[in-house]
Simulated assay, not measured.
Amino acid sequence: MLRKAKRVVVKVGSQLLAGEDGLNREFIDSLTRQIASLRGKGVEVVLVSSGAVLAGIKALKLRRKPFSLSEKQALSAVGQPYLMAEYRESFKRFNLKVGQVLLTAEDLRSKERFHNAKNTFNALFKLGVIPVVNENDTLSTEEIRIGDNDNLSAHVSVLVDADLLVILTTSPGVFDKNPENNPDAKLIPVIEDVREILESCDFSTQTRFGTGGMATKIEAAAKAAKKGIPVIIAGGREERVLERILNGERLGTLVMPCKKLKAKGYRILYLMKPKGKLFIDQGAEEALVKGEKSLLSRGVKRCEGEFKKGDAVEVFSLNGKLVGKGIVRCSKEELSTSKLCIHRDDFVLLREDI
């Protein structure tokens, strides 16, 4: 499965990129050397890289993380050119060029912008350019933020139809306990049920510069896996880690792919922020569960929030059980006069196997 991968997304976090006096040039050189080696074997690579805020912190000689979103945006504006300059110079040794791609959640929620982004990546691949992706922190607001690059890497994997997502971290993989405090902690080589792992293991430890911890990485991996993309969470400081993974060597933790969601279902489930809640009767719930019928407005007994046509909403049974998520065909005000509320093609059922 891994040896056959021809398009790979690689995510690196701030902890790996942090050096004593700024960005870790030794790590960046090692990373670009490995990506160049993969490119030489015909593998297309997308690099999702954190580090802009870190570079800004180091450039301005701060000794702390930013306190507010606006401060983070300012530091990102300072640091992003430094980060890209480091990658540009490092890839230049292998006659490879890089292209900067900055995304927000809104770029991925919209069907039109999603496909525009996909076309941009395909054009970069044809030109032989390495896309370096980061969240557009400088302009993003709370409403359109993705929030962390682990989840961004999962979304990008879906966007580019990747064969594999590799999340590189400071840990050799996923452990059943925090290995820093538990000498008996064991590496989990394969994860088939993400929900079971999240419930049974403690991943609460945060990193110094990063925005998430191991739980965020596992949750992001689950999203890619539900689109049918295998994910490896592995130690970024392992020698030749990318080359060894794609040669089939067992490194880190493999999150197995599972049932494939369609692209629209993925956007509805993971990218579209719900603007309201619909509470439906038992007959409507049974029809949606069977997947044979759309949700008619007469099946909606009450609603919460403010939504308009094209917005995402969550759908609940009358006893409060979450049934699924979908895109409404009418606004809240039109609900009483419209026949169709959610077409079955615009609804994602939240079952145990999804």
Score class of each variant (00 low, 15 high):
Ala287Leu: 14
Glu243Asp: 14
Phe203His: 08
Ala287Thr: 12
Phe279Thr: 12
Pro230Ala: 12
Lys293Asp: 04
Gly228Lys: 11
Pro257Ala: 07
Gly248Tyr: 01
Leu269Pro: 03
Ala224Glu: 08
Met256Gln: 15
Asp202Cys: 04
Lys260Cys: 03
Leu242Trp: 11
Val255Lys: 02
Thr216Ala: 00
Leu295Pro: 07
Arg208Ser: 11
Gly283Gln: 12
Gly212Asp: 01
Gln282Trp: 05
Ala221Glu: 05
Gly305Pro: 12
Lys264Glu: 15
Met256Thr: 14
Lys264Trp: 05
Glu219Phe: 01
Lys227Thr: 12
Leu251Pro: 01
Gly299Cys: 07
Ala225Arg: 12
Arg208Lys: 15
Gln206Lys: 15
Arg237Glu: 04
Val255Ile: 15
Arg244Cys: 01
Gln282Thr: 15
Lys260Ile: 13
Ile280Leu: 10
Ala234Phe: 01
Ala224Tyr: 05
Asp202Leu: 07
Gly283Ser: 09
Gly305Lys: 09
Gly265Pro: 03
Phe209Asp: 00
Lys227Gly: 04
Asp202Asn: 15
Thr253Leu: 01
Gly228Arg: 08
Val289Leu: 14
Lys223Phe: 04
Lys223Ala: 08
Thr216Ile: 00
Ala222Gln: 13
Ala221Ser: 15
Leu261Gly: 04
Asp202His: 11
Tyr270Cys: 03
Gly228Thr: 10
Arg250Ala: 02
Cys303Gly: 04
Ile218Ala: 01
Ala284Gln: 09
Lys226Ile: 04
Lys226Asn: 15
Ile280Gln: 10
Met214Thr: 05
Glu304Tyr: 10
Glu249Pro: 00
Tyr266Ile: 09
Gln206Gly: 05
Gly299Tyr: 10
Lys277Arg: 15
Arg244Gln: 04
Phe203Ala: 03
Thr207Arg: 08
Tyr266Asn: 05
Gly213Ile: 01
Cys258Arg: 15
Gln282Asp: 14
Lys264Gly: 02
Thr211Phe: 01
Gly235Trp: 07
Ala284Pro: 08
Cys258Glu: 14
